[in-house]
């Protein structure tokens, strides 16, 4: 079982925004959605990818020579990477002496992940913390997730899963007994809008939401508030309705959209479609919170 492997793009220790206490968050790589506002675009693709940090690039062009695939060329301002040619072999990473190249994503076994997670057991104990699986999408690698969760349970660690809800319902059902807290994203209730901005409709998500809600596992709902997508009273009211009906004891977290992930798109050679979007206004966030509260839901705005 522990030989199960999965792809992870980051394991963050002293993670303090992903559940109670001090936690370690394991970020799964690979996600079936492609939300235009995603602040971790490196989490979308399951395969490891090359990231180029232009702020550190000294334009020495040694990587151009080093790339066996011929994927790097000299452009008008710095290097240009042909993503179709690049297979993330990592040659350029060891060649670059300025840390301007990095491979994101790594295949890891359950044991390897566990070995990192167990190191902070003392902190979990003293703070009431534990481990969180996040993504990417946890349900995208269900076997890996299940094996990890079982292992954490055995060790007595509190577990939390942060999911977009998109994934095989059977896979989800098998995870539930090993989860102490769910963070579940609800983005929009209109399937068409949902599809336009995330690449998928929301039927599967809503079904899975109901599944988690009836399981009785504590649940918090995360709502990314994205201008032009769901920053309308109606959209928020719909979400409030859904949560109030299915999971009246859930806390709702409003996550205001921010652009801090923007640069990562360039590092991965991707376009950033939301370049013009603003951060939602405080007034709107407060109004959204009021809507949630009017439905009897506890609601927090992330800061």
């Amino acid at each position: 079982m522990t030989s199960t492997k999965g792809t992870v793009f980051n394991i963050q220790r002293y993670s303090i925004d992903d559940g109670p206490g001090i936690r370690t968050t394991v970020f799964f790589k690979g996600c079936p959605l492609s939300c235009v506002w995603c602040s971790n675009p490196e989490s979308q693709n399951l395969a490891p990818e090359l990231m180029h940090r232009d702020s550190l690039c000294k334009r020495c062009f040694r990587c151009v020579e080093a790339c066996p695939a011929g994927a790097i060329t000299v452009g008008s301002d710095g290097i240009v990477i042909d993503r179709d040619l690049c297979d993330a072999c990592g040659e350029c990473v060891s060649t670059c002496t300025h840390d301007a190249m990095r491979i994101t994503g790594k295949e890891m076994s359950v044991d390897e992940v566990f070995d990192v997670v167990r190191r902070d057991a003392d902190y979990y104990r003293d703070s009431g913390g534990g481990v969180t699986l996040s993504g990417g999408e946890v349900l995208f690698q269900p076997e890996f997730a299940l094996a990890l969760l079982k292992r954490f349970r055995e060790a007595g660690f509190d577990t939390c899963v942060d999911s977009s809800g998109q994934g095989d319902t059977e896979g989800l059902r098998r995870l539930i007994p090993y989860v102490d807290l769910f963070y579940f994203d609800i983005k929009h209730l209109d399937p068409k809008v949902h599809r336009a901005e995330t690449g998928r409709t929301n039927e599967n998500i809503l079904r899975n939401f109901a599944e988690v809600a009836v399981s009785g596992v504590p649940l918090a709902v995360r709502v990314p508030v994205v201008p032009g997508f769901n920053d309308s009273v109606d959209a928020i009211a719909d979400i409030a309705e859904l949560v109030a009906v299915h999971a009246p004891r859930a806390t709702v977290h409003l996550l205001p959209y921010h652009r801090y992930g923007q640069q990562k798109y360039a590092m991965l050679g991707l376009d950033y479609e939301l370049a013009a979007a603003e951060t939602p206004s405080e007034e709107f966030l407060k109004a959204a919170r009021a809507i949630m509260e009017s439905r009897g839901l506890a609601c927090e705005i992330a800061v």
């Binding site: 963050q12 303090i16 925004d17 992903d18 602040s39 940090r53 702020s55 550190l56 300025h98 840390d99 996550l255 205001p256 921010h258 652009r259 801090y260 992930g261 923007q262 640069q263 990562k264 590092m267 992330a302 800061v303």
Partner: peptide, 26 residues
């Protein structure tokens, strides 16, 4: 001097980013 501060992490609403990677206006 980004090179000397390449590991400087800033956190915003639970999101961590390397400061030097952020666009100038951010």
């Amino acid at each position: 001097e980004p090179a000397a501060h390449k590991d400087l992490l800033v956190r915003v609403g639970g999101y961590s980013a390397y400061f030097v990677d952020l666009p100038p206006e951010l």
